Amino acid sequence: MPIIDVRQLRKHYRVAEKRPGLRGTLEHLVQRRHRDVPAVQGVSFQIEPGEMVGFLGPNGAGKTTTLKMLTGLIHPSGGSVQVAGCVPFQRQERFLQQITLVMGNRQQLIWDLPALDSFRVNAAVYGIDDSTAEHRIAELAEMLELGSELRRPVRKLSLGQRMKAELLAALLHRPAVLFLDEPTLGLDVNAQARVREFLADYNRRTGATVLLTSHDMGDITALCPRVLLIHQGRLFHDGSLERLTQELAPHRQVRLELQQLQPAGCFEAYGLVDEHQGHHVRLRIPRQQLTEQVAALLSRFEVSDLEVADPPIDELIGGLFRREAGR
């Protein structure tokens, strides 16, 4: 049974329209005009327990609105959704005990108090006894590499330390489902890597289900074998990230560093030449021909360095969204 079951989920917002100027303001006071703005339009998907799934889309695509409906913060306009066997907008206690929502641009920690105090408040809210709370705090702090920082006021923590403390606070009640909205927003490269490692480790240890939205494709490629793609409120892809990459990029990039200069045009028989400058050559070779062509290159040319890679995933996904917008 899926732990998240979404069927034809919709959300429309009713907004007032006002013409500019004094006349428009007076008309707006006397008789308001409204229009419906669709934010999510018939989204359906299922997520099994323990899955880590990426939820991708450009700004305004409907990602955060969908997350808010899945966590019960807003009521859907239509369709149905169940999370951990509960209807989210009913906000039942057994539902709230099983989920958590972490937003990279929001915080739940009390700014002027040590993070430990916020953890104790959370433990009291969820009815966790002192002994269990202390054990969980110590366990999560070790996983997150947090020590004395927890006794300092939150305002004195670095952004990376605050984000890790936010994760600890959100996971104190051992939720079965994690909704993460830009959890590495604004973090430096090292802090991003630590948060990703922690989330992967937490998923392995607890079997928690994770639905992750992020504009940083490093988060998605590091954590999510499966991705959902949404554009203008409509889901248009649900499947393997690896398979999607292969479909979007039927070629692999091959970079060569040559020991000797070679004449122009001598690499065209091996693939599409993107660059040939001095000792440096960059080719695109069809995936099914890669082994054969690389072997042929190595047998013919003296190569000092060779690198085979996929095109950058963020470029591939960005191009897919641009094509979807042009339809």
Rank of each mutant, 00 (worst) to 15 (best):
E257S: 10
Y202W: 13
E197L: 13
Q253T: 13
I220H: 03
R243A: 07
E242A: 12
L244K: 08
A193I: 14
F236M: 12
G239K: 06
Y270N: 13
L261D: 08
D188C: 11
D216C: 08
L241R: 00
E257T: 14
D219V: 02
L229A: 11
D188R: 09
T245Q: 14
G218Q: 15
L256Q: 06
Y270E: 01
G207H: 10
S214I: 05
Q253N: 05
Y202V: 00
I230V: 15
L180R: 03
M217I: 15
D188P: 14
D201C: 13
T221L: 05
L235D: 00
V189R: 06
P225M: 12
L229H: 07
L228I: 12
L185Q: 02
D188F: 11
L185Y: 05
R255S: 07
L248F: 06
R252D: 15
D181V: 01
A269M: 11
F198V: 15
I230S: 05
V273Y: 02
Q253W: 02
G239N: 06
A193N: 13
N190E: 14
L244I: 06
L229P: 03
D216W: 06
L258C: 07
L256T: 04
A222K: 07
G271E: 02
V254Q: 05
Q259A: 09
V227P: 03
N203K: 04
L199G: 07
E268Q: 12
P225Y: 09
R234F: 08
L187H: 04
T221M: 08
T184N: 13
H231Q: 08
P183L: 02
H237I: 03
A191L: 10
L211H: 01
D219P: 00
L244C: 07
Y202E: 00
L241N: 01
L248W: 07
D181Q: 04
L272Q: 15
H215M: 02
G233L: 11
L228P: 03
D181T: 02
Q262V: 10
A222H: 14
R226I: 03
C224M: 11
